[in-house]
Amino acid sequence: MTAVLDVPSGDAARLDTPAAGDPRLARLSLNQRTTAQWSLREALDGARAAGLTAVGLWREPVAEVGLDTAARWVADSGLRVSSLCRGGFFTAEDPDAREAAHADNLAAIDEAATLGAPTLVLVPGGLPEGSKDLAGARERAAEAIARLAPYAGERGVRLGIEPMNPIFAADRGVVSSLRQALDIAEQHPADQVGVVVDTYHLWWEPGVVEQIARAGERIVSYQVCDWILPIPADNLLGRGMMGDGHVDFAAFTRAVAATGYAGDVEVEIFNAAVWAAPGGDVVATMARRYVELVEPYL
């Protein structure tokens, strides 16, 4: 656990934890999954105490307290909601299941609007059980997004397609590259459908810098965490704190900044050791790593 919350594994030196009000923290957002050990109330309070100005929310913790209560807490906190996660999971073959997914995504758009989240992150979904039709699953995801886009526009919410690392293609995300996500997004107005640039999912992609430039104004969220080894038995939990793995954050961040992206930068980490650590320690480490490895290149 100590290594997770210590200095980066590379050559970067330790920095003091930025104090509340430090201007370098102005765009840093705590995604709730980074401190999964915290409730929604604790995440809001912890983000404020650390001097952050934004949080990325998840639907499940919001549902636990109720949407109206969550919206009131957010408003009282003074924090921005950088995104709401997640919608998606569009790839079922059964028509009734697809209709249920559509209804759930309409509800997610409404939740994002109520919370003041400008972006609803979409995880496309994996292959239906027993299916090997990857092309068909991708087509169904694209069709589902096309159905949702006009309503999202009406509600003032942008859909953010999140391409996922190919290791998740079978069970979570049949859209595996930024190139594929843009091929879908570009069929719709930019104020309705965009893409999520997540360093964990995209660090491997050949030509990713060119694809980020292509994305331009369609980047609706920039999420950062590291790719670490060894990959755990549950590969979903293989995300590390920035500086502990193999991602070139300077190159990624420069590319995103060059598009004119001026939104928040979310740290989203799925990692059992991070979740086992005290939330305040995690946020302090996150802030140090961010101001050292990410913020200078924005």
Results as ranks from 00 to 15, higher is better:
Ala233Ser: 10
Thr253Asp: 03
Arg218Asp: 09
Asn235Ala: 12
Ala251Gly: 13
Asp244Val: 02
Val220Arg: 02
Leu229Cys: 10
Met242Tyr: 02
Thr253Leu: 08
Pro230Tyr: 09
Ala251Trp: 13
Asp226His: 06
Ile219His: 08
Ala233Lys: 09
Arg218His: 11
Ile219Ser: 06
Gly240Arg: 02
Val224Tyr: 01
Cys225His: 04
Ala250Ser: 14
Trp227Thr: 03
Gly243Tyr: 00
Ala250Arg: 15
Gly238Lys: 10
Arg239Ala: 04
Met242Ala: 14
Phe249Glu: 08
Ser221Phe: 01
Asn235Trp: 08
Leu236Gln: 12
Gly245Ala: 10
Ser221Glu: 14
Phe249Ile: 07
Asp244Phe: 01
Pro230Ala: 11
Leu236Thr: 15
Pro232Cys: 08
Asn235Lys: 15
Met241Val: 12
Asn235Gln: 15
Gly245Phe: 11
Ala233Met: 07
Pro232Phe: 04
Arg218Trp: 10
Leu236Met: 14
Ala233Gly: 03
Val247Gln: 08
Leu236Lys: 06
Ile228Gln: 10
Gly216Phe: 04
Pro232Tyr: 06
Asp248Ala: 11
Val224Ser: 00
Arg218Ser: 11
Phe252Gln: 01
Asp226Ile: 03
Asp248Leu: 11
Ile228Leu: 07
Met241Lys: 03
Leu229Asn: 13
Arg239Glu: 07
Leu236Trp: 13
Gln223Phe: 04
Leu237Gly: 02
Val247Phe: 02
Phe249Arg: 08
Gly216Pro: 02
Asp234Glu: 15
Asp234Met: 09
Met242Thr: 09
Met242Val: 15
Tyr222Gly: 00
His246Gly: 01
Ile231Phe: 08
Leu229His: 12
Met241Asn: 03
Met242Cys: 13
Gly243Val: 01
Gly245Lys: 06
Arg218Phe: 12
Ile219Cys: 06
Val220Leu: 07
Leu229Lys: 15
Asp234Ile: 06
Ala251Val: 14
Glu217Val: 13
Val247Ala: 07
Trp227Ala: 14
Val220Lys: 01
Leu236His: 09
Ser221Val: 04
Asp226Cys: 05
Ala233Glu: 14
Gly240Gln: 02
Val224Asp: 00
Glu217Asn: 12
Glu217Pro: 09
Pro230Leu: 11
Gly216His: 09
Tyr222Pro: 00
Arg239Met: 06
Arg218Glu: 09
Met241Glu: 05
Val220Gln: 01
Ser221Gly: 09
Asp234Ala: 12
Gly240Val: 02
Ile219Tyr: 09
Ile231Ala: 12
Asp226Ala: 05
Ala251Tyr: 10
Phe249Cys: 07
Gln223Ile: 15
Gln223Val: 15
Ile219Asn: 06
Gly245Gln: 08
Glu217Gly: 13
Tyr222Arg: 00
Asp226Gln: 06
Glu217Leu: 10
Gly240Tyr: 02
